[in-house]
Amino acid sequence: MKKSSVVSLVVAAFIITIIAELIGTQRINVGIGTIVLLPMLFAVVMGILITPGVLGKRIAALGKAIGTEEVDLAGTFVMVALLPLGVKYGTLVGPNIVKVIEAGPALLLQELGNLGTILLALPVALLLGLKREAVGATFSICRESALGIIGEKYGISSPEGTGVLGTYLIGTLFGTIFFSILGSLSLSTGLHPYALAMATGMGSGSMMAAASGALSEAVDPAMKETVLAYAATSNMLTGVTGLYAEYFLGLPITNFLYKKLEPVLGRRK
């Protein structure tokens, strides 16, 4: 790590953190429910804004301080900075271990619910005119394990590979923003907060944190700790089962449905 890069990256992230905490948690009533905007949402938006591709190219001094080198370095920092959050999740699950075991059947079976993406997103992708790209893009939430599966089976430069990379990239760029809004807003569907909590564990630490953090601030304070404990447990389970579910269920089901649906929904050339 180059010293000057570390210093400018840390100074930038520190200033962003301070501003985000000064803004604090904001609640916006939108009629159908309340959107809880957490400091982490403001932090990710400010982080994107100061990069070379956005404000960096307009403001010369900023572009000089945060360049390609600092952007690359930030990736390493994320991996390590996630760990204190991991510890906190552990301290939320431990004391609630009895509750978590009682909810075991729901926690295990809801992993299958992750396949809901196929039912919802595959038809949409076909209607939009995607072909084999649709299989890669919709068979799972497309985190690292999915990249591995598609990469091995079809090759990452195949149409399926283009699809999986597309969803992966959108998830990386906008996943936390999307889920930090959906996390609190989803309460208005009438689904129980505990069920929504389990749903936030999708195999991505930062998306889970965004969704469950917002959800936990929107629910009755008495439920807060259980919400976070279920979320963390669900995410750990997805970490263990996700790869197998994607490989043995997600991909075969998507391929099967593709064969059935593509002739009906796919656009003719």
């Binding site: 992230a13 982080g47 930030a74 994320v78 930062s206």
Partner: peptide
């Protein structure tokens, strides 16, 4: 985390 994550993308 999210401050670094924002910059990293």
């Amino acid at each position: 985390i999210l401050a670094f994550a924002g910059i990293s993308v």
